[in-house]
Computed example of a mutant assay.
Amino acid sequence: MAAPPALADDASGPANLGMTAGNSTQADIATRGLGGGGVMPDWSGIYGGASLGAGRASWSRSSSTSAIGNLFAVYLADMGDYVVGADATFAPAAVFGSFSTANEELRAAWAIYGRFGVKVDAEGRTLASVGFGPSWVRTRDDAGDTRTSAGVSAGLGLDYLLDESWLLRSGVTYSRFGSVGARGDRVNSVSAHVGAAFRF
């Protein structure tokens, strides 16, 4: 009678195939940095939201501190390990905050940023980013005259993608204006904020 075929060392047997497939899948997930067996989220999209925080504006001769709020719109494009995009922000100081000196007040500020971010966690839900771009500020003096001045702004941010629809945002922004208001004062401002945005 013929001896039965040996199966113990057969690496191509069904049991070993299943083990190999399982190990391959786990290794693939670890390589791609996926969490919880899910798919890495895609940041691409258009977001709109609001944030609250505090800021300080410094003129040539004085400074002012106030709570402040921002409305913002964001476009992001997910490139894999990094994300690029653009932000547009508007801070209506007359509603959300008030920065003023003895005879002049900042009434509103807005900016457009180019943004570059890197995913900093294994699941791809946390994004550290930098932004830079032009900004503008509007002032009003005691006589009621308003002026708009241009400058530049830069920011550091840390965002978290809560789910497919909501983004949590935090950051610090620095702005510099070379000539503001009737006296042409130099104005520097720094603010910190936290907020949320909805993806449309």
Rank of each mutant, 00 (worst) to 15 (best):
S24K: 10
A77W: 09
D159A: 15
S191L: 03
A88F: 15
G131H: 04
S60Y: 02
A50P: 06
G33Y: 12
N23W: 08
P14Q: 09
T31P: 04
A30C: 03
P134A: 08
W43T: 00
N188V: 03
Y174W: 14
A128V: 09
D81K: 08
M40N: 09
P134M: 04
G35W: 11
A8K: 06
A73K: 06
G97D: 03
V39Y: 13
Y82M: 13
L158S: 01
V137Q: 03
T25D: 14
D163N: 15
D121K: 12
M79I: 00
Y160R: 12
G181C: 02
V187H: 00
G37Y: 08
H193G: 09
Y160F: 14
A67D: 09
N16G: 05
T148G: 07
G97P: 08
D145W: 11
R61G: 11
V172P: 05
R107Q: 11
S44T: 13
A67Q: 07
G69S: 10
G171P: 08
G36V: 04
S58K: 02
G35S: 14
T25L: 15
A3P: 07
A93Q: 14
A154P: 06
R61V: 10
W59Q: 03
S58Q: 13
S63M: 06
F99Q: 05
R183I: 06
P92G: 14
Y174L: 09
G124S: 04
A6K: 00
P41L: 07
T101M: 05
Q26P: 02
A128R: 08
D78M: 04
A182P: 09
L161V: 00
A197T: 02
K119H: 10
L161G: 00
T146L: 03
G131R: 05
I46H: 03
A2K: 15
A102R: 12
G195L: 05
A57H: 07
W110S: 15
A197R: 04
G49P: 07
A86Q: 08
A154Y: 13
W136I: 06
L106K: 00
V84R: 03
A57C: 12
A6M: 01
P14Y: 01
V83W: 01
L127W: 09
F132S: 02
S66Q: 10
L167H: 00
A3Q: 15
G22A: 15
E123W: 13
N70W: 07
